[in-house]
């Protein structure tokens, strides 16, 4: 029950402004989703799967947009990575192994 006190008291006077903030995000998403091509959600998920193979991500932070201008379309993807700074050696270890193995093979051959 403590938690609830925290949630509510943090901005006790103004839960409406919290509602507005939350709605702006949801509505922006929704409007975008209405105009996107049909393949978009699937493409987005597949891209996420690929990224997740290499680094830890929080997919709720993803923003992906397709901007259509008169003469070109731009796909913009923004995704903060969970780790503060991604270095080559901080990539998920399971992915390092096959890489090392692959390198070895090259040497051997």
């Amino acid at each position: 029950m403590r938690l609830f006190d925290y949630i509510f008291n943090r901005q006790e006077k103004n839960t409406a402004s919290q509602a507005k903030d939350r709605l702006q995000l949801v509505v922006a998403h929704q409007r975008f989703a209405q105009n996107q091509p049909d393949y978009f959600p699937k493409m987005q998920r597949e891209i996420l799967e690929v990224i997740r193979k290499y680094v830890d991500i929080d997919e709720t932070e993803l923003s992906m947009q397709l901007d259509q201008n008169e003469d070109c379309s731009i796909l913009e993807l923004n995704l903060p990575l969970t780790a503060k700074k991604v270095q080559t050696n901080s990539l998920k270890s399971k992915n390092n192994k096959p890489k090392a193995a692959a390198r070895k093979k090259v040497k051997e051959s």
């Binding site: 609830f4 949630i7 509510f8």
Partner: peptide, 14 residues
């Protein structure tokens, strides 16, 4: 209304 504003089910407000 307050509960829905902040996104916490009202039952959490004892």
């Amino acid at each position: 209304l307050k509960a829905s504003n902040v996104g916490a089910p009202v039952i959490l407000d004892p």
